[in-house]
Write a protein that binds this DNA or RNA. Structure first.
Length: 279
DNA sequence: AAATCCACCAACCGCATTCCC
DNA sequence: TGGGAATGCGGTTGGTGGATT
């Protein structure tokens, strides 16, 4: 709207944050809590715009952030969720509470996209041969949306991932992560070759039309991680959205169903309901 | 050992949305 | 209710370090 970017102001510093700046920002947030970012530069004397402060906090300094390599389970989650939600990184990040949207986005752009492209091109060359041989199957394939075709490739990719992936992870630590891992394992174990994409798509589109989709409607972005080490961001309007208990999205329902059919215990269900409330 | 290439990721930019007066 | 300001989000860039030539 013609508004000059806040970081264009004279005297505003750009570039990598120094440890000193980090310390100033962290100690300020420890005292005042996150939120009200516009007051941060003025109150701390940091030569950074409010936006930059917020970004530094949410993507780097915030407690509970897990850094380093993504586990195969996390990778699988991202692939699934990207197929379902598209490039809604904030929404995807809400399902991987220890990862930031920026982290996930970077990982997708640098690793997963390449993998998928490769598997897609492999598949294309394979399917070209198939098409020549079996024209009878062509119609059903052509009637599928791009959504379906892309998820098929994802499913194939996951097939490889499943086989390579250990059943127990030594890197996951939290209850939440373990639950996610179980969900993913159960899903992979039972449905890799028969994932109901068409069904999903239908329900998803239904959800869309009812307003389940959207950045903040169906999938709430959770800034709260595993509770213990997280300062909840109070005072920020957006956090009100985050605090609200969201309705179960289709994805959550699907994950719950997967778990219940694989395990089915009530205890498990209640844990997952808890998780659903957390998200 | 130096130059070049490449992958990774922190940080920035700009648009969209939400808030507040 | 409208408009300006603040905030959130996704795309993109640029610096850095490791690998390769």
């Amino acid at each position: 709207m013609g508004r000059p970017p806040c970081c264009d102001k004279i005297g505003i510093k750009k570039g990598p944050w120094t440890p000193e700046e980090d310390i100033i920002l962290v100690s300020y947030i420890q005292e005042h809590g996150p939120g009200n970012w516009r007051s941060v530069p003025t109150n701390t004397g940091l030569l950074r715009c409010s936006k930059s402060c917020r970004l530094r906090w949410t993507n780097y300094l915030r407690p509970g952030i897990k850094r380093g390599n993504f586990t195969p389970h996390e990778e699988g989650m991202i692939i699934h969720l990207q197929a379902l939600l598209g490039n809604k990184w904030a929404s995807i990040a809400s399902y991987l509470p220890q990862r930031t949207d920026n982290d996930i986005k970077n990982y997708w752009n640098t690793h997963l996209k390449k993998k998928l492209n490769k598997s897609e091109s492999d598949e294309r060359s394979r399917s070209e041969n198939m098409v020549l041989q079996t024209s009878a199957t062509r119609n059903t394939v052509n009637h599928r949306s791009t959504y379906a075709s892309s998820t098929e490739n994802i499913s194939r990719l996951l097939e490889g991932w499943m086989r390579a992936s250990p059943k127990t992870s030594t890197t996951t630590t939290t209850f939440l992560e373990q639950k996610m891992q179980n969900r993913t394992n159960n899903f992979i174990d039972h449905h890799t070759d028969q994932f109901p994409y068409e069904q999903l798509q239908g329900s998803w589109e239904e959800g869309h039309s009812k307003g389940i989709n959207g950045d903040d409607q169906g999938v709430k972005n959770s800034e709260s991680n595993n509770g213990d080490d997280v300062h909840h961001e109070d005072g920020d309007d957006d956090d009100d959205h985050h605090n609200a208990t969201p309705p179960l999205t289709f994805i959550e329902k699907w994950l719950l169903e997967e778990t219940s059919t694989a395990g089915g215990q009530m205890e498990e269900m209640s844990h997952l309901m808890e998780l659903s409330n957390m998200l």
